[in-house]
Simulated scan of single mutants.
Amino acid sequence: MKISSISSLKSICINQPAPKDRFWTPDIGIVESIKIEFGTKDSPYLQLTCFGFTVTSDVLSLTTACEMNLYRFPFDIQSCNITLQSTAHSVDELVMNSLYDSVWLTEESKQTFQAQGEWELLSINMTSSNNSMLWSVKNQLVYQITIKRRPLLYLVNFMLPIFFFLVLDVASFCIDSSGSDKLSFKVTLLLSISVMLLILNDTLPSTADKIPLIGVYCSVIFSLIGISILETILVNFMMARGAKKRSVETTAAVTGRDDCVRDQQNPPDSVRDQNEEQCRTLDRLKQILTECQAATRQNPREKTSLCWTRVARIIDVTFHFLYVITITVFLSVLGKVWGLY
């Protein structure tokens, strides 16, 4: 008797398919949807279980609106909600609950999640709440989907090249400031960054709330290289000013010596020997006098030219030191805000 009852129970508890149009289906919609028509793929049948459940599955192609915070782009983490709610039934008539927990749903969703490699699924959390309206209270089932952007594409194609340009600008301080090669090199770096910003303008997201950190990163590096160019122009101007004063002094000294030589080369033949001996004596005296004057004091023009050159070198070294410190502090603060370390 017991064996026959158990076998009959097993035969009754087998899941049976049934036409879906013969059963009541609740009208459940998605609040965040921005399309009226959905691309669905549903089965015309459902399954009846011996526990009193009806099981049906639908495949839904959904387009939703999600507010994104792009302040930490491309190292941003976004959270989007999918809210299920009935449009006709109140909380007294329809209550929605999830069949699985968040851990199981997250693990299963990671295996089927596809986002062309740019996004990574972190978690899916579920909450059930009641939404109060003017005429009724409706039950809601909210799925919070948290995704993280993979920054490798933007890091390799955008951020690292601009950082290398900044490193080249720091290394350009080793170039001699007396020539124009250093200034030309810095201007080329600035133009290269400008061209890259124009090319990658469509890649960067646009936002109206606040400037993303990647915009701050590009703007500050562009400004630092621009300030470095201004400092190079100032140093070159001071070096050229000092060199000009030294060249004027050297030209005057050479002119005076040539006059003396011309006076010595055109005396009469009768007194040539006597003048040569006197010139030798005078040359020795002048040499001794010049050495004494150089030991005691310097020419005011020479002092001025050396002052311009010395100030230019001091400015260049000081700016290089402050430039490196500013870059280090800026990148450290930006990395902490970005969450890199």
Score class of each variant (00 low, 15 high):
Leu189Asp: 02
Gly52Tyr: 06
Cys307Ala: 05
Glu120Pro: 00
Arg284Ala: 13
Ser123Asn: 08
Gln78Cys: 03
Lys186Leu: 06
Pro44His: 04
Pro17Lys: 04
Phe75Trp: 06
Ile233Phe: 14
Ala18Val: 07
Tyr143Pro: 02
Thr25Asp: 01
Asn97Ala: 13
Tyr217Trp: 00
Thr250Trp: 05
Leu322His: 05
Pro44Ile: 07
Trp24Lys: 00
Leu9Pro: 14
Ala115Trp: 12
His89Val: 00
Asn131Arg: 13
Ile28Ser: 00
Ser123Met: 02
Ala88Leu: 15
Val170Gln: 15
Lys186Ile: 10
Gln140Arg: 07
Leu46Tyr: 05
Asn201Arg: 02
Thr54Ile: 12
Arg297Pro: 11
Ser90Gly: 11
Thr83Ala: 02
Leu282Gln: 14
Val59Leu: 13
Thr250Arg: 05
Tyr100Glu: 07
Leu230Met: 10
Arg301Ser: 13
Ile327Met: 08
Lys10Leu: 11
Gln293Glu: 14
Thr54Ala: 11
Thr87Glu: 15
Phe237Leu: 10
Thr40Asp: 10
Arg280Thr: 06
Leu200Thr: 10
Leu200Met: 06
Lys110Gln: 11
Leu141Trp: 01
Leu190Lys: 15
Thr127Asp: 12
Leu334Cys: 05
Arg150Pro: 00
Ser247Val: 01
Lys186Gly: 02
Glu249Asp: 05
Thr232His: 08
Ser128Asn: 05
Asp92Phe: 14
Leu189Thr: 03
Thr112Arg: 11
Leu122Cys: 09
Ser43Leu: 11
Thr83His: 07
Gly256Pro: 01
Leu189Lys: 06
Ile162Ser: 01
Cys292Ala: 09
Asn139Ser: 13
Ala208Leu: 05
Ile327His: 13
Gln293Lys: 14
Phe75Gly: 02
Gln116Phe: 13
Thr290His: 03
Asn236Asp: 03
Phe185Met: 15
Lys186His: 04
Gly339Asn: 14
